[in-house]
Nucleic acid binder design. Structure first.
Length: 329
DNA sequence: GGTAGACCTGGACGC
DNA sequence: GCGTCCAGGTCTACC
């Protein structure tokens, strides 16, 4: 008999909108079921892996009560095994991080005050991972590779190194050889950098990556950016992306997608470097929320081409949602 | 400080 | 089925 937990989210929380808000919801071990409107994945817990299925607005039998869920309706989390008391506590923290439940309605309202375009839809939260380590690795596996390659690397990392189909923990990757990551997970030249990153996370405060320091709101943006840039495999794009995953939205992770958006949607002309500069200047007035304004503009563009993200299937639409493919249509 | 080229993989395309 | 080309951000060497 598995454990069932109920979590009360912020009063404006909508699972389908707030999960299907950033591309990582399509990356293994994450799975959004567009038909059932449920999110599931394997979580790494003290007692071993456990698969969770999260739904909102389901009845007592776990069946979907309605397609239109009232915002703020409690989240039902059903696990495939019984959880110990300490595991329940741990998994609630992981789910809160992943779903951004720390960003309450007041936080969302503050963003909408700066950029009212998203007030009606309620967009504000961006899906992320249950752990900082997974966010960093997902970012590294999204650099210098097309989206299907990122999908493939994350799937293989879960299948080859992860426990029970979950995302591998830093300890497991630190013990893995770069050669195995390259041959079986197809991570290419990222192999040694990924192992080095994992070793730094395992070292923690002792000369490595202190995740708590990065997650601490008291740490300055400048200090975090500098520390990220010093990590193997992390450049300007990856650092800015990891910062938004940490809830720091002032910097823009500008890449080739940004250039396409600048040209196709904003009508900017010139070289890639010139377009990037103009994109940066365009979103600068949004200050601390620049990334969210930028991202939701791109996301709406994707949805105009491929339909609402909560209807995307991981293995079909989910493979082609980037602008590079959208613009071919 | 700025720039060129190498690093890998997978998909598209031509034959 | 095979070979070639291309996209993608980081890192290093060089000017």
């Amino acid at each position: 008999m598995g454990t069932r937990l109920s979590i009360t989210p912020p009063k404006d929380y909508v699972l389908s909108r707030d999960v299907c808000s950033y591309g990582y919801f399509l990356l293994w071990p994450n799975f959004w079921d567009p038909r059932a409107g449920t999110f599931s994945r394997v979580m790494n817990l003290p007692g071993g892996p456990a698969k969770v299925t999260i739904s909102q607005g389901t009845d007592a039998r776990g069946e979907r009560a309605s397609d239109r869920v009232k915002p703020g309706t409690s989240l039902s989390c059903v696990f495939d095994r019984a959880l110990a008391t300490d595991e329940k506590k741990a998994v609630k923290l992981q789910i809160a991080r992943m779903l951004r439940l720390d960003e309450d309605a007041a936080h969302v309202a503050a963003f909408h005050k700066v950029d009212p375009r998203w007030k009606k839809s309620g967009r504000a939260r961006l899906f992320r991972s249950p752990s900082f380590f997974e966010d960093v690795l997902k970012t590294v596996t999204s650099c210098n590779v097309t989206w299907p390659g990122t999908l493939s690397m994350n799937r293989r990392l879960c299948e080859v190194v992860g426990k029970g189909g979950g995302f591998p923990e830093a300890r497991a990757i630190a013990r893995t050889s770069p050669a195995l990551l390259r041959s079986r997970c197809r991570v290419g030249y990222r192999d040694a950098r990924i192992v080095e990153l994992a070793k730094l996370f395992v070292a923690g405060k002792k000369g490595g990556v202190d995740a708590a320091w990065f997650e601490d709101p008291a740490t300055s943006d400048e200090a975090i950016h500098k520390a990220l840039i010093d990590l193997p495999g992390i450049g300007p794009y990856a650092a800015a992306n990891i910062m938004q995953l940490l809830g720091r939205y002032s910097r823009l992770p500008l890449d080739t997608e940004s250039v396409r958006h600048g040209r196709a949607v904003l009508g900017f002309k010139g070289s890639s470097a010139q377009v990037m500069k103009r994109v940066h200047a365009h979103f600068a007035p949004f200050g601390e929320n620049a990334f969210r304004s930028y991202w939701f503009e791109m996301w709406v563009h994707y949805e105009k081409k491929a339909g609402p993200a909560h209807l995307w299937d991981r293995d079909t639409t989910g493979r082609v949602f980037t602008a590079a493919n959208m613009n071919k249509k």
